[in-house]
Structures are given as structure tokens and as C-alpha cells.
């Protein structure tokens, strides 16, 4: 099934620079409906109030981390429970990847990353586009 380029995507990072980078890279990939949040709790509120086709989240944020956000999303009984979730983080230890996977992450990108990696990971989660 073709990827809907009009889907809503939520990007979550406490660094505005990173939000801007990801947003611009998504724009180049023709994903233009992109919302932003600067921590997990803000993201969770947005997820509860809007349907997203993909969440791309940093891990290390306060007060709610990306892992906690992922756990809350996957642990909910709402229809956003299974939203595709990619972790984009500088946390590159094996135990981090395992913890994220066990929490239900769909893919994991280690920072710094390039546009090609972002595209490949999105494709691996949503399908080729």
C-alpha cells in the first residue's frame, strides 16, 4: 500500500534545532503535515487529540522522556496505541536499543543521522515511498 504523504507526523525533541532539521528533511520527502512537541508529555497530549500516522521522538527529554512516551502510548487502550513510533536519539548503547524495542518501538535511529537513514527507517516502518 502506498504511503499517504498527507498523513500527520509528530516529531518530538527538546532541541528546536533538531525539530527543525527533521521537519525540513520530512518536507524534502514531501511530508508536509508535521507537528512538533518538545517533550513526552506535550507529545502525549497531541497524540490524544489528533490522529498521527507516525511519531518520531527523541529519547532524552524532561519531564517525560521519549521512552516513557512510548510506554504510555503502547500501554494505552486508545486507538493511537499502535501508532508507528521511531526513536531518534543519541543513546546508542545496546541496552537502550533493547529497552526501546521491548517497549514497542518500530525503529531506532542513532544521532547524528543523515537524510538517507531517515528515509530508509520511515520506509521500513510505513512501506516504500
Amino acid at each position: 500500500m502506498a504511503v499517504d504523504k498527507n498523513m500527520n507526523i509528530l516529531i518530538v525533541d527538546d532541541y528546536t534545532t533538531m525539530l527543525r532539521i527533521i521537519k525540513n528533511l520530512l518536507k524534502q520527502l514531501e511530508f508536509n503535515n508535521v507537528d512538533e512537541a518538545t517533550d513526552g508529555s506535550m507529545a502525549l497530549e497531541k497524540i490524544k487529540n489528533k490522529t498521527y500516522g507516525l511519531v518520531i521522538s527523541d529519547w532524552n527529554m524532561e519531564p517525560m522522556t521519549g521512552l516513557e512516551l512510548l510506554k504510555q502510548v503502547r500501554g494505552s487502550n486508545d486507538n493511537f496505541k499502535n501508532v508507528p513510533f521511531i526513536m531518534v536519539t543519541a543513546e546508542s548503547k545496546t541496552e537502550n536499543v533493547v529497552a526501546a524495542k521491548q517497549a514497542g518501538v518500530n525503529n531506532y535511529i542513532v544521532k547524528p543521522f543523515n537524510a538517507e537513514t531517515l528515509k530508509m527507517k520511515i520506509a521500513s516502518v510505513l512501506g516504500d515511498f
Binding site: 529519547w59 521512552l67 543519541a90 543513546e91 546508542s92 548503547k93 545496546t94 524495542k101 525503529n107 537513514t117
Partner: peptide
Amino acid sequence: GDAALLNGPQLAGQGVSQEEIDRLL
């Protein structure tokens, strides 16, 4: 718990590569 996992960014040689992460996943 989860808080103990927050140690990044890792210095060279401490973390694993994207390829290793892909293999792990």
C-alpha cells in the same frame, strides 16, 4: 530503572553503530 539508561551521547567506542542497532532489532 529507565533513568539509569540515560547516559548518551556515548563517546567513540562506547555505543553501538547504526548497523549494529539494525542487526539487534
